[in-house]
Design a protein around this nucleic acid. Structure first.
Lengths: 240, 240
DNA sequence: ATGTACAAAATAATATACGATTTTCAGAAT
DNA sequence: ATTCTGAAAATCGTATATTATTTTGTACAT
């Protein structure tokens, strides 16, 4: 009956104390985001419930939410597993991300302070510095940081949430791309600077949106070309 | 659209027989999409469970999924209700919809057959015919049909799903807009024809995307101007 | 060796039970 | 009349129990 498991951190006097369902959700999402649960990982209800010292019911609810978010896949009478990101899935997700992140970046642009932009530029500098002694993992992490600065102030919470889900969904995969196609990293840094420049100069919103979108699509293209040299990916052309 | 719950699940002998959880989900989503559960409607677990002749557990899971999709809102120890669509929420949702539907329409364009386009044009003709003896409800229904034809073949299932959720989320509200601002209906028909023309003539994908996007944003603007005459909504400008 | 049959184990799906929290509302105090 | 108080009712949150399905392993026949 776990009466004592109220436990540790919060609790005592008057904390709201997250629901078990929320606890399970946060836990699972954290494990997935961090990559500790990598794509394909099997989510066994009883095991997770035992780990968190709760019953399976809240865990099931958490998994249902993750399912609706596309982070885990469910099969009747078999169970849930972290969504696999095969090449096709990667393409679809990156496409979606390019769309929502492009918009989010564009919508955030006028809300960015000079400090924000300076910070982003600093991160991009670090990115360019890693190019010599190239470390895909570090690069990926900084890359995420860079983009987060740029889409964070997005005033539309739905779209903001979709951006987050997209990044989460790519999971571990997102690291490999820069290992596969090292040349992409350098180009990426240059495109970052271009985006910053557009923001600084109050460029046409549409131009910013498309720059951000195509930046992501270019990474996707690099991946697809690596996958199958002959693949031809349709994308929106740059407006000259 | 409530079209997913159909199919014969009435077999006794050896049908896969949807899970109770899925049954509850389909039921609830159908009720919400159809507007029978209108925004703010309180979803009482025990009641729904009794209606469907299942226990509350599967119903809770269904509600969790709907929560993650943004169709219902949850409050701890209080319960779930169909998401309220206040003006701010309406704006955010329409903005999101303009983004994903614009893309979906653009991506569907090359996949539309001549028959599809003819069908869409026919629906638009019906739309224009209702303008005389104007019936907002009928107009809204046909409007949905028109757009569904245009974004249905979208090859990216994630984005396709986001479009569906957007429409579902607007719920009943979507009807009222054309009642509030009758003038918008006529303009809408004209914009539909413009979109069809762009698709037929294999226009630049970006142009199609922006036409579809701005079409929706124009409806949003009409609503916002109706709401507060002084509101100033920033939007992406047409490329001249 | 290979494949089938069937039992056993693992796991998911659902129901029921019960404690916890919020809401409602009658009645007392002001 | 208004506000406070404290049950009672409604409803949610979670644990436990039961049933159903899938998977696994093993013995047996070919």
């Amino acid at each position: 009956m776990a009466t004592e498991t109220l436990s540790a951190e919060t609790q005592d006097s008057e904390s709201p104390s997250k629901s078990k369902s929320q606890l399970a959700y946060d836990y699972l999402r954290g494990e997935i985001n961090s990559g500790r649960y990598s794509p394909g990982y099997r989510l066994v209800l009883a095991t997770i419930a035992a780990d968190l010292d709760v019953s399976v019911v809240p865990v099931r609810e958490a998994i249902r939410r993750l399912e609706a978010e596309g982070l885990v896949e469910f099969e009747r009478n078999v169970g849930a597993r972290v969504t696999m990101v095969n090449p096709r899935e990667y393409e679809i997700t990156m496409q979606t991300l390019s769309l929502v992140e492009g918009w989010a970046t564009c919508a955030s642009a006028p809300l960015l302070s000079k400090t924000d932009i300076a910070r982003a530029r600093e991160v991009n500098l670090e990115l360019s510095e890693t190019l010599d002694h190239f470390d895909p993992l570090a690069f990926t992490s900084l890359n995420r940081e860079f983009h987060t600065i740029l889409f964070e102030p997005c005033p539309n919470p739905h779209i903001r949430e979709l951006v987050d889900r997209g990044w989460a969904r790519l999971g571990v995969l997102r690291e490999s791309i820069f290992s596969f196609v090292p040349g992409r990293a350098k180009q990426s840094v240059a495109e970052h600077e271009k985006i910053l420049h557009l923001i600084e100069t109050d460029a046409d919103p549409l131009e910013i949106e498309l720059a951000a979108r195509n930046h992501r699509l270019a990474t996707l293209d690099a991946f697809l070309e690596h996958e199958t040299a002959r693949s031809k990916h349709t994308r929106i052309k740059e407006t000259a």
